[in-house]
Amino acid sequence: MEIAYFPGCTLRTKAIGFDNSVRDTAKVFGYDLVEVPDWTCCGATFNLSVDNVMALAPPIRILANARKLGNEVITVCSGCYNVLKRANYTVRNDSEKLAKITDFIEMEYDGDVEVIHYLEFLRDRVGYETIKTNIKRNLEGLKVVPYYGCQLLRPYDEIQLDDPEAPTILDEVLDAMGCTVVDFPHKAECCGNFLSVCTDLTPEGRQAVGEEAATAVSECSFTILDAAARAGADLVALSCPLCLYNLDVAQDQIEKIHFGFRKMPIVYFSQLLAIALGLDTDKYALDSEHHFVDPSAVVRSVAKE
């Protein structure tokens, strides 16, 4: 069955392993993810100023294009999901804005496309039982913490994916694919990525912003990673390229500051799903080129056969 898919820019560049693993795992369950025609960047952050109607143009155009393929669209980057879902919510509840934006983009759209996160799709459409019956590799040896971050869950009124304080959907999906899921208290906490992407963390950069400010950035990541390590996890699974970058890039610095800190690879949940489903592990960028903390040893430990 074909279903519309919005990969987003990051998945076509830095997070290519995320994109490939989502497409390939969907295929195992009998779904062909078809790219939304003529898609552009969604804008990456939802604009909070109510009068900036312009920021609605890209996401609404994407949804209007998705409409050509059906009335639902799957996306998987937490950022894209957040932007598309909130833009949709906005025009569904504000007919004036909808009229203005469709007039501007010169396309018809009435808010009738459902934005679906791939996790949601795995839960509601594929079903955990189907995931379990398709497992080809045993991931029991992997102790994984699910990390949700903010964009996947908040604001709840607009997103409504899961409980914003005590979410379980990622836990359940990881559990269905056979990982040993490790609970920890920081799974829905902000990783501080908007600080890290606008702070130059090279030695010269650190000097420019001041050591204290630069450390504040890596401390956000430290809180999360340290808690994960104490809970006994081997790796972190998530669904956001920004979270991945942030948790990943900070570890060298954290190691210098915090004696005894143990580095931990960060991966996308769909990369683990691809391994569990027996797909070719070399195809999903689980390497040092795409990750600061190389996940390949962990992957090899479970993907021998």
Binding site: T40, C41, P58, R61
Partner: peptide
């Protein structure tokens, strides 16, 4: 290039 707001 990253300032493009996709206004078309």
């Amino acid at each position: 290039v990253m300032r493009c707001v996709q206004c078309n």
